[in-house]
Design a protein around this nucleic acid. Structure first.
Lengths: 231, 231
DNA sequence: CGACTTTTTGAAACGAGTCAAGTGCAGTGG
DNA sequence: CCACTGCACTTGACTCGTTTCAAAAAGTCG
């Protein structure tokens, strides 16, 4: 529950239009508006938990600004990051009663929340809303299927190349990729250690496939080469 | 298209009730019946392709008897099996216009087919049908999320133990697990080579965790031990 | 039974992990 | 303005688990 921090919440329906590039989920965003559902803005600081694994699903979330990681843990601390969520992305939508991954802010992050129950109600009346919910889940499944191929088959270098292309596609601004996550997060996403990620990036740098301006500001110099490497 | 082999198709609405243990997807099965949709039975022989990656999605499938693997390939032949589909399971349901994995019969397999378009139509009228479609996709996503954790984090032994528990849960009959797939399929599912799978099974046998009667008939002697190992 | 495929087992090689320094960068305060 | 501090990142040397390659054993089917 968020009631203990209600002072931090500001109701804001205008946020909907901000920084949401054209994607399939826009339909869902529109639904949020059309159904006159109450969307609420909330801010999380770096590394703050947004929801926990097995927590009940009271809200559905959309990133407005910042970035989010969702992950599963094994009992000894090994972590698999399932996805990174960037501005415009919906996350935390579940069919069942509880979340199956933990969500944390990668950096200071602003999200819009909507009550899951109100979405349910809308979906029971409007088939288009029901379709939109299905669409969001189907999009996550598509990503998960691609990621299983990466985790089950690809080499370290192929994984890092695929990661860079994904980030380039999703958050490239002016040919520069500004990564919001550290090497450990990248490693836990790709099923590698942070050292292996670092070595692969260094190797790509040596081969003039990319340039750095600081460890997290990357310019891709040879996109086609990356595509070839990513297999 | 199946028109060239229409002679092999037999329309059969009674198949619905056969060998479908209680699961979430039963709702979907019921929907198939209630909406008076035409379900058709079809038979595939061992290793026969049911649909291919990027093929357009004309049908949704349900295993009646046998078993199915769905997978993605890399250009050099590396393969990641996403799921095994057993009697009662729905597969091949896509939100988008084309399949994202290839489906093949593991053994001689009987499936029921339903036209995707007729499901779409039903979903546009009945919100319960729309919910059922979402539910099927959400179930696949849940499996994919668990499998990413396995592929990204777990050791060979942990993967094999988890696999055995999954198969035990899904197809155990009289304490015996009769695997419909070969070691290579298991390896491609777990992100391991067939040799590594074989070694892990041998090791579990040496530790009296399981017994064999033939390579594919497995009796689990110590289920708790397997749970501990699977992490 | 004999031919083929699948599975097991062994030995060697390799890719990624682990452990341990060392470097660089951002923020803090003298 | 520049040392100081604390992380994040890089790099090196070594280890280890899994893969690769090869051959034997077991299982399946005509």
């Amino acid at each position: 529950m968020l009631s203990h921090s209600i002072a931090n919440i500001e109701t804001n329906t205008a946020f909907a239009k901000a920084r949401c590039p054209a994607r399939p989920v826009d339909q869902f965003v529109n639904v949020m508006g059309l159904a006159s559902l109450v969307a609420t803005a909330f801010r999380y600081q770096k590394d703050e938990e947004i929801f926990g694994e097995d927590e009940s699903t009271e809200y559905v979330y959309q990133v407005v600004r910042g970035a989010v990681r969702t992950y599963k843990l094994l009992s000894d601390g090994r972590r698999q990051i399932g996805s990174f969520h960037l501005p415009g992305d919906i996350f935390g939508l579940e069919y069942g009663p509880s979340h199956r991954l933990t969500a944390e802010a990668l950096v200071e992050t602003e999200v819009r929340l909507i009550q899951r129950r109100s979405l349910e109600n809308a979906a029971n009346v409007d088939v288009q809303v029901a379709r939109s919910l299905w669409n969001v889940t189907a999009g996550e499944l598509r990503h998960a299927e691609d990621h299983m191929l990466l985790l089950g088959c690809k080499t370290a270098m192929e994984r890092v190349a695929a990661f860079l292309l994904e980030m380039d596609r999703r958050l490239a601004a002016a040919s520069m990729v500004a990564l919001p996550m550290c090497r450990r997060d990248i490693g836990d996403y790709l099923g590698l250690t942070l050292e292996t990620v670092s070595r692969a990036l260094s190797q790509l740098h040596d081969q003039h496939v990319l340039d750095f301006s600081g460890a997290r500001q990357i310019v891709i110099r040879n996109r086609q080469r990356l595509r070839d490497i990513s297999a």
